[in-house]
Design a protein around this nucleic acid. Structure first.
Lengths: 211, 211
DNA sequence: ACCTGAACACCGTTCAAGT
DNA sequence: ACCTGAACACCGTTCAAGT
């Protein structure tokens, strides 16, 4: 007992284990993490700021996969679109984590930094300060919603066998992963079109919208 | 002890109490409900299908405030916009409940019924089957995201005092409730514009519902 | 049918005690 | 500094026992 020569736990391994648990079960608990890592529950608290801290670590880990260089692209709408795509891909890798991220506030410096740069991008493009967060929040909603939909479309709807909702059933079975991609693309273009409206600059017809 | 002359509990009172708790705390538990209603925890289970059942009851209660007659309006895009507005208003009344609704699947018949009618509206307008759910899901994301943002904008962001993210801080303080309304309106118009695009150029391989 | 009271397995969090 | 082991207050759920 007592302190081991080499630490049994560290933040990285706690994060990885939590992510594994959520990927498998859609949930995690501190005792479960401790069990998988062969330690006592209390030990985890020496490395991490409680359960909420673990959630924040997962957010950080997932957001590391976002390519922030996309924010350097020009013009601003190409940068925003590329950022959104990378953002979505990162979350689509761990869709079951998303519900955990809507409750707790964003604290991770690396994540805040990305948003800081995104804000700078929009301000630099000439957006009014008050318009920036609505656009970015809309983008975030779109990204998270579509990532959730991409990998877990069936979990959101539970239809009875003798369906009194035949049209809904038809519509649900008609959607696939490829369709979700297409829907994301067009919805993203819609949002950016909305942003152009706010900016007051109409979209040129000859602009290339392809990724 | 034993069975009382008149029941101490019923589904409506359980739902109301759960809603009160979530409005106050952002959370609820079965023992808390029982305590407020002056009964034992176990008694609640005689009226309700577990904790998840209570969540579903809250969803149902909230969705009762949605005006489904909006779906009878013409043309289809006016109906969809009015439905979205009513939908958002209903959720904005209990924003802290929203995170609870993203995990569990939709089972409530009355809610399914509304979606059934919305599907019918879009199919009747000539949408391809595969396009219907992306549009409705996008609408749902927009509604829930904006309702959440409307009444709890500060909870999603926790900036340190000595902010290394000055632009983000500026952008956040510049947003208000009125702005959120405006953002919703334009984003909604953007989504419906996207939907019009889908209607005008349906994918040839999967359109079984030509006008 | 509906409520009690107790039980069970599980949480999140803290903390003295050890090395 | 880091882990153990035990403690605390709290969950969700079940169930015999009572009326």
């Amino acid at each position: 007992m007592g302190r081991p020569r080499t630490p049994l736990l560290d933040r990285a391994r706690i994060t990885t284990t939590a992510l594994e648990l959520v990927d498998e079960q859609g949930e995690f608990s501190v005792p479960q993490i401790a069990r998988r890592l062969g330690t006592q529950t209390g030990s985890v608290y020496h490395h991490v700021d409680g359960r909420d801290g673990i959630v924040e670590l997962m957010r950080e880990r997932i957001c590391e996969a976002i390519d922030s260089r996309t924010l350097d692209l020009e013009p601003w709408d190409a940068a925003l679109a590329a950022w959104a795509r990378s953002y979505r891909a990162a979350f689509a890798a761990h869709p079951r984590v998303i519900p955990l991220l809507t409750t707790s506030p964003v604290r991770a410096p690396k994540v805040l930094e990305q948003y800081e740069r995104a804000v700078g991008l929009l301000l630099g493009a000439g957006f009014a300060v008050a318009d920036v967060m609505p656009v970015l929040t809309g983008l975030e909603n779109l990204v998270l919603g579509s990532a959730l939909d991409l990998a877990a479309p069936e979990t959101m709807w539970e239809l009875p066998e003798d369906s009194p909702t035949p049209q809904l059933a038809r519509a649900l079975t008609a959607v696939g992963a490829g369709r979700a991609d297409a829907a994301f693309d067009v919805a993203l273009e819609g949002l950016i079109g909305h942003a152009r409206t706010l900016l007051g600059t109409p979209a040129p017809d000859d602009r290339d919208h392809a990724p």
